[in-house]
Simulated scan of single mutants.
Amino acid sequence: MDRLITLHSTLFDGIERSFSALIPLLARLIFAATLLVYFWNSALTKLGDGVFGFLRASSNAYAQIFPRALEAVGYDASQLSLFHWAVVTAGMWAEFLLPLLIVVGLFTRLASLGMIGFVVVQSLTDLYGHGGIAHDGTLGAWFDRAPDSLILDQRAFWVFLLAILVIRGGGALSLDRILSRQILGHATPT
């Protein structure tokens, strides 16, 4: 039995050491393959008209982020406060910039932490702002036989993927690693 445990440890410790930098790279690849276009398409629905649409979000953006506040002012976003504008504009920019930073591996930990916060706010808005909490199945449940609830199941995977990047950084082939070597003159541990 000792030999089996030693063989197991030797084999898998070697695999872990050899491929540890690939885990964050694979996490970034999976993020790009599954969530990048989702978030960018969502951000595109928030852009206002014209060249400066990135500064003046569409009314759709307010409907997505502040549905009850927009309804309270008769769906006239110009009646909302500077606070609403700042949150909607920052949310729109975050949906473009944070996923891009994750994919290229620049400030990966901070971008991933920002995306976790974004997903939490998005989930709370879906549940309480849009009334999803009142509909059976939207929230879902853990430890049940259905692995496809919109909030608890799906977004737990998103947050787990992002948590790997918060903990491990960008990994191999990231701008974080390249800049660390160029600026600091050494390789980062991840």
Rank of each mutant, 00 (worst) to 15 (best):
S18H: 09
I167G: 01
R109V: 09
Y128N: 13
D13Q: 13
G132F: 02
D148K: 05
I164D: 01
G50A: 14
E16F: 08
I102D: 04
P99L: 10
L127Y: 07
G48C: 06
A156I: 09
G74W: 12
I178F: 12
I133V: 15
F143Q: 05
L175Q: 03
L113C: 06
F52K: 07
A69T: 03
V159Y: 00
D49Y: 12
E71R: 03
L113H: 00
V87R: 00
P147W: 15
D153Q: 13
E16T: 11
D76Q: 06
H84P: 08
A90C: 14
L165K: 01
T89R: 11
T34Q: 10
T34E: 08
A33W: 03
L139A: 12
A86Y: 08
M92K: 00
G14M: 11
V119A: 10
I5P: 03
D126V: 14
G114E: 12
H84W: 04
A163F: 15
L98N: 05
L98H: 03
T6F: 05
M1T: 06
L152Y: 13
P67E: 04
L80H: 01
A156K: 06
P24G: 02
M92D: 03
G50R: 08
A146K: 11
M115V: 06
A94K: 01
I183T: 07
D136M: 09
V73I: 02
V103S: 07
A32D: 01
R155V: 02
Q79S: 09
G131V: 09
G14N: 14
Q79N: 15
L4T: 07
L150I: 06
I15N: 05
F107Q: 12
S20Y: 15
S174L: 13
L7M: 07
A141L: 07
L162S: 02
S58D: 15
S18Y: 10
D176T: 08
S9N: 15
F12Y: 13
H135Q: 14
I102C: 05
P189C: 03
I178V: 15
S180L: 08
G171V: 09
A57G: 05
F157L: 15
G129S: 03
R109A: 11
L44R: 05
R68L: 14
F12D: 01
F54I: 09
F118W: 13
G132A: 10
L55K: 06
G140D: 14
P147D: 08
L44V: 04
A94C: 12
L175E: 04
A141R: 12
D126H: 14
F12V: 11
Q154W: 04
L7N: 11
Q182L: 14
L175R: 02
R56F: 15
V87E: 00
L124C: 08
K46I: 08
L165M: 11
L29C: 13
R145V: 03
L22T: 09
F83E: 09
M1Y: 13
I102K: 00
A90S: 06
A163D: 00
A163T: 13
L35I: 06
M92F: 03
L106D: 11
P24Y: 07
L80Q: 02
T190A: 10
V120A: 09
